[in-house]
Design a protein around this nucleic acid. Sequence first.
DNA 1: CGCCTATGAATGAAGG
DNA 2: CCTTCATTCATAGGCG
Lengths: 200, 200
Amino acid sequence: MPRPRWSPTPQQLMILQDLYRKGLRNPTSSQVQKITTRLSLYGKIQCKNVFYWFQNHKARDRQKLRKELMMLHKIHKTTSDDDVPHQFHTTPNTNNTNINLDYYFPPSTFHTLYPHSPSILVHQGEGKDTSSSSIQMMNNMGNVDFPKHCVIENGMMRTNVQGWILMMTDMGPNPIPSCSNNKPLETLELFPIKATGIKE
Amino acid sequence: MPRPRWSPTPQQLMILQDLYRKGLRNPTSSQVQKITTRLSLYGKIQCKNVFYWFQNHKARDRQKLRKELMMLHKIHKTTSDDDVPHQFHTTPNTNNTNINLDYYFPPSTFHTLYPHSPSILVHQGEGKDTSSSSIQMMNNMGNVDFPKHCVIENGMMRTNVQGWILMMTDMGPNPIPSCSNNKPLETLELFPIKATGIKE
DNA sequence: CGCCTATGAATGAAGG
DNA sequence: CCTTCATTCATAGGCG
């Protein structure tokens, strides 16, 4: 019966990878259509397959890069596993509950691992501890929350991607209006304003 | 060359299972790291191993339950014996020792187990609601091919993503010059008639 | 040994 | 974009 889910043929994959290698990341819809048309020569395929492929590939590619970058930081910081002091005081917000691994995994003793039931930690709900994880996130943290590589103007943001207008409806605190430089924000991001991300 | 895949040591496995039993399903990145660090005491291990372990364990736990439930339905229906699109030849092992999916957790831990809870998805400086866009009903004409969250209207397509609205204007050459964000590659010819010597 | 199952790893497809 | 789920690929280990 029909394949429940698309799987790229070697030919298709090669083309996709080549496009990606050439720099294509967020294909416009017309680009997606063109690609789809082209790839359909090598097997059944839909636009959404192409769309998702780029999305996933980019995400997982970036994850890899972040991982590597973090490794460098790791070397620089030397064991940042227990650099977070327990912040049990000042915890008014009970929304953000978690299994406290600091507690679950005390620095040295194994005995204390199983003394109680669920080890719960309530910590401040600021930042973006969304209590979720993914392979894309699992190797990094300390990311700043606000948009990257984007320009804001008139309370809206957009890029000049051909055929697409990217508007930001979720305005963050960033008031930066400039839009003339090429990649200024990237350097800023290397130094997060606030050391968030690391929780617990 | 083929790097042998990770296999948990008994110690590691026990800890993982215990965490799972305690309700941990989608560990955050920092949780994954802590776990990894802890487990590394008992053998070589990487973050992704921990991540995949939880993903797989959860998925297969759920999968098993799903099959069982379906079995019950099967008994109840008796008609078409081939309406099941999956591979079900592997159902002998009913050694479901402790698949208590009806975990009961102290109220304070609930959100950890069900990360979809929106209360903990706090973004800094967030104020707008992106879903307020009035264009919802999909007038899906031709391009049913695209992902669902893409809505087409007036010859434009937009897709709602968190905090952003991506509008696609399929209008030939880009008339919008300002705010060059230096993303030239987005506009490259996808399938040039003649081999272009690498641009960009 | 070859088959089979359990499970680590990967990725397509969505949801938010 | 980020996170999660479902499905599939790949392989180590158990069995006849």
